[in-house]
Design a protein around this nucleic acid. Structure first.
Lengths: 226, 226
DNA sequence: AGTAAAAACTGACTATAGTCAGTTTCTACC
DNA sequence: GGTAGAAACTGACTATAGTCAGTTTTTACT
C-alpha cells in the first residue's frame, strides 16, 4: 500500500544512509567548531569525537586521519566559494580580472580562519584520505574551469590561439597556489597578497618574460610611474 | 706561552662546540640512513636517537620535531646540488635552458630517494624548526640567484628590460615548485616531469599568454605538429 | 687546583593519534 | 515477523612524538 501522492520521493535513503549522513555532518561541524576556536593542533581527535557524539574509532571511519578532517570541513566551503565566484564572473572582463575575481573569493574564504586554512593548504599536497581525494578531484574540475576561462579569452582574441588552455590553467594554478602559501605562511595581509602579490604574478604570466621584437609594444597594466 | 708555530689554528673550537658538531653529524647520518632504508613514517625518533647514540631528549635539541630532521638531512644536499648546477651553468645558453639545467640537478637529487624527498617537499611550507629556518633562508638565496639569471638574460636582450627580475624569479620558482609537487606525488617519471612538464610551464612563462598583435610573431619552441 | 655558573644531556614520563576484536544495528530475503 | 549476513559502531588498547626535572660536563675565572 504505497501512498502514491504522499512522500514526493525526495530521498530514496535507507535508515542506514541517513544515519551516516547525519554522523558525517556532526563530525564536520564538531571539527570545524573546535578547529576554529582552539586551533588545529590544540584540538584532539577525542574531543572532536566527543562533541560529535561518536566513538573515537568511528571518527576514523569518516576521515582517514586528523589531516583528513581538514578536507572534510573545507570541501563544502571550497565548493561554494568557487561556485559563487563563477556565478558572479564578469564575462567580458579581461582574463586577468576574471582570474583575480575568482581567486579573491577563495582568498576571502580562507581569510575567515587563516590559521586553519594554513593547515589545510599545507596538508593538501600528497594527502591520501577519502576526503582528500574528493578535494583533489575537485581541484581537477577547478583546473578545467580555469582552462575554460582561458579558452573564452582565446575566443575573444585576448589570448594567443596556439596556447594550450590546460597548460595555461596549470601555470595559473601554480602561481595561485604559490601566492596562497606565501600569504598563509604569515606574510602580509589579504589585500596585499592579492594586489601586489598575485596580480603581479599573473600579469607577468600574461605578458611573458621574452622581449617583444616587434613594434611599439604593449605595456603592463600599471605603467612604470617613476 | 702560546706555541706560535704549532697548532695551525684550523679550528678555534672549544671541546663543547666540537662535541655538538659531532652529535649533529651523527644525528644527520642516522636519520638519513633510516629514512632512506625504512622510510620516513616507519622510522621512529627513538631509533634515530639510538643509532646516533644520543638520548631521545637530545635529538630534540638538534631538531624541533620529526619533520625538522628532514630539513637537517636535506640542507646540505640541497646546497651542494644548487652549487653544482650553478658551477656548471652554460653561461650563454638561453634562459630557458639555463633554468632547466638548474632544476634538472635538483630533480635528480630528489630522484635518488623520491619517497623521502616527497616528505621533505611536503613539509617545507610553514615549517618552523631551526633547520627549516636554515633551508627557508637558503631558498631566498636561491631565488636571488634565479633573479640573477633573469637579469643576465635582460643584459643579453633576451628578456624584456621592464620586467622585475625578482618577480620573474618568484614566478619561475612557483612553476618549479608546482612541477616538483606533482612529480613527487607519484605521477610520472623524472624525465617526463622535466621535459613535457616543467619545460612546458617555463616556455609558457617565457612567451606569455597574451596575443602578440605585431608582425609575424615568434612561435613556441615546439611548433604545433598536427 | 678549585669552584660557581652555564650549557648540554638524559631517560622516565605524558598526551594523543590511530587500531581492532568484539558488539550492535540495519537490510534483504524467506 | 523471523533470521542470516552485512555494515556500522565501539572503546580499551598500542605505539610513538615530544617534554622536563634532574644530572653531568664544560667553561671561565680566581
Amino acid at each position: 500500500m504505497p501512498p502514491p501522492t504522499e512522500t514526493p520521493a525526495p530521498a530514496p535513503l535507507g535508515r542506514r544512509a541517513q544515519q551516516k549522513r547525519d554522523k558525517k555532518r556532526r563530525i564536520r561541524e564538531a571539527a570545524w567548531q573546535l578547529f576554529t576556536t582552539q586551533g588545529y593542533d590544540a584540538t584532539t581527535t577525542s574531543s572532536v569525537a566527543k562533541r560529535a557524539r561518536v566513538a573515537t574509532g568511528t571518527l576514523f571511519l569518516y576521515a582517514k586521519d586528523k589531516p583528513d578532517l581538514l578536507f572534510l570541513v573545507f570541501r563544502d566551503r571550497l565548493r561554494s566559494a568557487v561556485d559563487a565566484q563563477f556565478a558572479s564572473m564578469p564575462c567580458d572582463a579581461p582574463l586577468l580580472e576574471q582570474l583575480l575575481h575568482l581567486f579573491r573569493g577563495l582568498f576571502e574564504m580562507y581569510a575567515e580562519h587563516p590559521a586553519v586554512a594554513a593547515e589545510f593548504v599545507r596538508a593538501l599536497p600528497g594527502a591520501d584520505g577519502p576526503n582528500a581525494m574528493a578535494v583533489n578531484s575537485y581541484s581537477m574540475v577547478f583546473l578545467q574551469r580555469i582552462a575554460g576561462l582561458v579558452q573564452a579569452a582565446q575566443a575573444r582574441g585576448e589570448v594567443a590561439a596556439d596556447i594550450s588552455p590546460f597548460q595555461a590553467a596549470s601555470n595559473i594554478f601554480s602561481l595561485y597556489f604559490g601566492a596562497l602559501l606565501v600569504w598563509l605562511s604569515g606574510f602580509g595581509d589579504l589585500a596585499s597578497a592579492l594586489d601586489p602579490g598575485l596580480r603581479g604574478a599573473l600579469e607577468l604570466q600574461m605578458c611573458g618574460l621574452r622581449r617583444r621584437d616587434c613594434g611599439e609594444g604593449w605595456s603592463p597594466t600599471r605603467p612604470p610611474s617613476s
